[in-house]
């Protein structure tokens, strides 16, 4: 998606601390862009009905806006989670861009908007624009999608490194691959037949795969969080354990 795939660089210290320190800011900026590129891109594309290249340019412009306009300095963790804050900032940015492009269409602007065939194809292929009141929810969905996509990529790399690519394929078939609407998820027995494994091997491999994927998801999540509190909060939200804890 968006044609841009960047590996998440290793992190040290919280993201917000590194972004505010001039010595570490460039690398932290790379980490921020790598972590949030996909959801921001997807959100801009859907929100404004943009084509691939326009959405990429605007995504880059958004991150420049975040850093160069000093928005990060105004982030207050007491008021909102980083992801929520970023989605609101993105919405405000998208609204401004929308107003600007409308003014240009009416002839009020001077900038030229490219309407090349490729871009038009992409626009036709893009999802329906998202209404403003659904923005936070939509951003969260895209954010989560990007998180799991990055984690799956990391998990694939780990499996290759361990010499166990079958483990990745097994997880993909068991939990990721879509099944027809009238079909059901493949049973362990079906997977054993398909992969030529014993039933116990399937359960063991899947157990290991899910455990390793979980570690990859948590790594990717940590890279997206500004500090430990943010990470703990996001982790609880992801695990669904942020409801009232009573026992």
């Amino acid at each position: 998606m968006g044609g841009k795939s960047r590996a998440l660089p290793p992190t040290r210290g919280t993201l917000i601390e590194r972004l505010r320190d001039p010595a570490t800011a460039p690398a932290a900026y790379e980490a921020l862009v790598a972590a949030y590129w996909k959801p921001v891109y997807a959100q801009l594309r859907r929100r404004l009905g943009l084509g691939n290249e326009d959405a990429k340019d605007l995504t880059q412009a958004f991150f420049t806006h975040v850093v160069e306009r000093g928005s990060l300095a105004r982030y207050d963790r007491e008021r909102a989670r980083f992801r929520t804050w970023l989605s609101r900032l993105l919405e405000s940015f998208a609204a401004n861009e929308h107003a600007r492009s409308q003014a240009q269409k009416r002839g009020g602007g001077t900038a030229h908007v490219s309407i090349d065939p490729e871009s038009a194809d992409h626009r036709l292929g893009a999802s329906a624009p998202v209404a403003a009141d659904e923005v936070v929810e939509s951003f969260e969905r895209e954010w989560r999608r990007a998180l799991f996509e990055d984690a799956l990529e990391a998990f694939r790399a780990r499996c290759v490194e361990l010499g166990k690519p079958q483990r990745f394929d097994l997880l993909l078939r068991a939990d990721v691959t879509e099944v027809p609407p009238d079909g059901s998820r493949p049973s362990y027995r079906t997977l054993a037949t398909e992969f030529g494994l014993e039933l116990t091997q399937v359960t063991n491999e899947l157990h290991a795969a899910r455990r390793e994927l979980r570690a990859c998801v948590l790594d990717a999540l940590r890279a997206r969080c500004v500090d430990e509190d943010d990470f703990a909060h996001e982790r609880r939200a992801l695990e669904g354990s942020d409801r009232e804890i009573e026992r």
Binding site: M1, R141, R145, F148, E149, L152, E153, D175, V176, E178
Partner: peptide, 8 residues
């Protein structure tokens, strides 16, 4: 790889 909402 693009994941569907169901896959997530």
């Amino acid at each position: 790889m693009t994941l569907s909402d169901d896959a997530i």
